[in-house]
Nucleic acid binder design. Structure first.
Length: 479
RNA sequence: GGCGGCAUAGCCAAGUGGUAAGGCAACGGUCUGCAAAACCGUUAUACAUCAGUUCGAAUCUGAUUGCCGCCUCCA
């Protein structure tokens, strides 16, 4: 069964075929480190994390590069505004990136290079572009000449003529074409700078990705990814640079994820609705965030709101609940890494093979949750051996899927404890007090004082504490 | 002005030519002292509108309407 991937370049789903059998070279544009990461970064990083995990599960060796752009206009601005150095700014936000993404259980990429570590490669590329007549120096800057590259616009579906008609571009009369973009920028006093054949300066935006991609993965790679907004101009310009120099297809599959809206509005600094990952994680379990992000197809826009997040939390609770029942009943533990083998895994793969349709895959998870609960309900004491085997196979598949999505991948105890901690944090209830109330209620129930017992239940309910009477005692959790 | 995307039940969301997955919410039921959880049942003759292709379309084509994104830094 082949894997299909939507390719922005052809605007179609295509059968995924790698340059080298069983080996995937993948480059994903990482952040420009001048600010904290928001939920939109999380979507992109989580999605490509899942893509890498899935390709590995399907037997590919995946060489995954995710860069940091640590030299850029915005970093310089930030440094000047805060009175610190660019290096400090970059270091700070790289550190924060790791804190956020580690919390979201994002696996490390194979290589995580920084632009400033590749200055010699960048200079070499720029020089090669000049030598081939694709770029020209100008007062210490170097510009790429878009008119000299015939494929310019093929990714974003634009023609230079059309763009000139309506674009609002700062017209720099020195440039040969308004869309010529900087490969190298002469540095102003106080800016980061490196020696180059064109004087002291720093790389422009775009060239660092071409340089790091070719240095680490070669001139042609399988997948290049990023947010939809990077299609133009960033990726368009990368193609122009790399193909002009290497005269080969730069990337076979261009993969772009959609945006996250906040309460149906575009997330933007002017609207003041930027949601930082670290803030979201104060209220929601990391796996809830991942499940939310993966519940829609990666190319569709998704809407972040309390409602959609609460639904994801309810959904995740439900999955953990059945896992807990199952693992208690059969005395199994997640560390006993299961071998996926069953029908559920197969159908999950069918969904994932279809352009990483995580939404469909998650739907299948819920179908199996109901099936499992049904079996557990109808056979409290015993069940035929083949039924038990089928249930165990489904359990193994569930846990395997959890490891691909990075969701329901914890022990049920850990998840319950973390959820409770978050709930307590959000509502400020005192666990000791809750325990005391439960003890009082248990006493009342023993004495058959139902009215008193129910009053306690109701009182706790108003504080969002839900009680569950089990044979072994009363459990509580945050609703 | 140019380019692209999307419109499926109260809400979220699959479906990519063969007769509408799943989640949440709601209602009824089983279970329970009462609940919670779980399970069962009910909830779109119908997929923005109109026309066309086809034995057959949510799925293909054209038009219309409405949203949205990009064209400037942005995941």
């Amino acid at each position: 069964m082949p894997i299909y991937l939507y390719n922005t370049l052809s605007r179609k789903k295509e059968i995924f075929e790698t340059i080298e059998p069983d080996k995937v070279r993948m480059y994903v544009c990482g952040p420009t480190v001048y600010d904290a990461c928001h939920i939109g970064h999380a979507r992109s990083v989580v999605f490509f994390d899942v893509l890498a995990r899935y390709l590995r599960a399907r037997g590919f060796e995946v060489i995954y590069v995710r860069n940091f752009t640590d030299v850029d206009d915005k970093i310089i601005q930030k440094a000047q505004k805060t009175g610190t150095s660019c290096k400090e700014i970059a270091e700070k936000f790289i550190r924060e990136f790791y804190e956020d993404m580690d919390a979201l259980k994002v696996e490390r990429a194979t290589f995580e290079p920084r632009a400033t570590e590749y200055i010699p490669d960048i200079i070499k590329l720029v020089q090669a572009l000049i030598d081939k007549g694709h770029a020209y120096p100008l007062d210490g800057d170097v510009y790429f000449s878009v008119e000299r590259f015939s494929g310019y616009g093929k990714l974003s579906g634009r023609k230079l003529d059309d763009m000139e008609a309506g674009a609002r571009v700062n017209v720099d009369v020195r440039k040969r074409n308004p869309f010529d973009f900087a490969l190298w920028k002469a540095s102003k006093p106080g800016e980061p700078e490196w020696d180059s054949p064109w004087g002291k300066g720093r790389p422009g935006w775009h060239i660092e990705c071409s340089a790091m991609s070719s240095a680490l993965l070669g001139d042609s790679i399988d997948i290049h990814g990023g947010g939809q907004d990077l299609t133009f101009p960033h990726h368009e310009n990368e193609i122009a640079q790399s193909e002009a120099v290497f005269e080969k297809i730069f990337v076979r599959y261009w993969v772009h994820n959609g945006f996250v809206n906040i309460n149906s509005e575009k997330m933007s600094k002017s609207l003041g609705n930027f949601l930082l990952i670290k803030d979201v994680l104060k209220s929601y379990h990391p796996e809830v965030v991942r499940l939310f992000l993966l519940s829609s197809h990666y190319r569709s826009p998704i809407d972040f709101s309390d409602k959609t997040m609460d639904e994801s939390r309810a959904a995740l609770d439900k999955i953990y609940a059945v896992l807990s029942r199952l693992e208690d009943r059969f005395g199994i533990n997640p560390p006993e890494l299961p071998q996926q083998s069953g029908d559920l895994w197969k159908r999950f793969c069918d969904a994932m093979d279809d352009d990483l349709n995580t939404a469909r895959g998650i739907g299948m998870v819920f179908e199996s949750v109901r099936t499992l609960n049904r079996f557990l309900d109808t056979s409290e004491t015993s069940m035929p051996e083949d039924t038990a085997a089928a249930i165990l196979a489904t359990w193994a598949d569930l846990r395997s899927i959890g490891r691909i999505l990075g969701v329901f991948s914890e022990s049920t105890e850990q998840y319950a404890a973390d959820s409770k901690r978050l709930g307590i944090h959000n509502t400020m209830v005192d666990p000791a007090w809750v325990e005391q109330m439960i003890a009082d209620r248990t006493a009342a129930r023993k004495a058959r004082e139902w009215q008193k017992a129910d009053d306690i239940r109701k009182q706790l309910e108003t504080m969002n504490v839900i009680l569950e009477d089990r044979p072994e005692g009363t459990l509580w959790r945050m609703g």
